[in-house]
Computed example of a mutant assay.
Amino acid sequence: MDRLRAMEVFVSVTEQGSFSQAAEHLELSVVMVSRYIRQLEDAMQVELIQRSTRRMHVTEAGRMFYEESKQALDQVRRAYERVESLQQAPSGLLRVSAPMTLGSSLVAPLVAGFLAEHPDVRIDLVLSNSVVDLMAEGFDAAFRIGNLGDVDLVAKGLRPYRMVICAAPGYLDRHGHPAVPADLAGHRLLAHSTWTNRFTWPLLDAGKEYPWPEHWVLKSNDGQALRLAALAGNGILLQPEFLVAEDLREGRLVTLLDDFLPATRPVNLVYLRQRSALPKLDAFIRYILRHAG
């Protein structure tokens, strides 16, 4: 049994709260995750996790083993990082988190360019609209939109996040041009499913805020899916400028309601201060700031 790998699997099961989610997080099968847990329990002759068909519960022994395993894995990670920091050329694995639309449209091309310059670096780019815990989830860096609340993170400001409202010329020929936010009530709209009370993009009119109407014809958590729907003439889109910049230049989409756009928001590349000495992370930070700062 690979004890270190088994400890990593057990820590993931404990933190994720289920075998299936841990398997997805570690890119293993559920059968393999169960095998590692069973091997640990057989080796120590103790039950670490009580499980049934509906739920699982970490035992007292399991909780103790989790705390010790977490510390051991952190120590192993620090050992690797100290050796990596002695290297001249950037190399090794970088784990990076980014929101989905920002990640696919802006971060992914930057990552591709960085890899071309640094062939000895590998990048695990995870796109998710969830805010990750860099330390707990093992990320080296993350791209964040909006004001930051993490006091323990170093933040480097990037170009601000600016939204645009647009539609295909064919749609506007059929349905007309909205002149003020209230006119959107009579239009077919495309909405992003992560727009919640916590993270919305209200339109601004004479100091008042108007939320994006709820009567959408398509809702998706992927900005590219919404962009394709707008290009097909299915409705009016509110998305970041970088996503549709080429479509606007080529005339496939045209902007609307420019005087009522939501306020721009800051974008930051954040990372843990103690990891900035790693050549791979330092090179990544400098590359991002050079191209998107």
Rank of each mutant, 00 (worst) to 15 (best):
M1K: 02
R3K: 14
A6K: 07
S12V: 00
G17K: 03
A22V: 04
V31A: 12
R38V: 08
E41V: 04
E41M: 12
D42F: 10
A43E: 13
T53S: 15
T53W: 15
V58P: 02
G62S: 06
R63S: 13
S69F: 01
L73N: 02
V83L: 07
E84G: 11
L86C: 11
Q87S: 13
Q88F: 12
P90D: 06
P90K: 10
L93K: 14
L94F: 13
A98E: 01
M100N: 14
M100V: 15
S105C: 10
L106Q: 15
V107K: 01
G113C: 05
F114I: 00
S128P: 00
N129L: 07
N129H: 14
V151D: 06
V151Y: 09
D152M: 12
A155R: 08
A155Q: 05
Y161A: 06
A168G: 03
D173Y: 12
H175Y: 08
D183S: 12
A185T: 06
L189K: 07
L190N: 01
N197F: 14
R198V: 15
F199I: 11
F199V: 12
T200N: 13
L204E: 15
Y210I: 12
W216L: 09
V217R: 14
V217H: 09
N221G: 15
N221F: 11
D222P: 02
Q224P: 09
A225Q: 09
L231W: 07
L238R: 07
Q239G: 12
P240F: 03
P240H: 04
L243A: 01
A245R: 15
E246G: 06
D247Q: 06
L248N: 13
R249G: 10
R249P: 05
R249K: 14
R252M: 11
D258A: 09
L261Y: 12
A263N: 02
V270W: 12
L272M: 12
S276G: 11
L281H: 01
I285P: 09
I285Y: 08
H291C: 02
G293H: 05
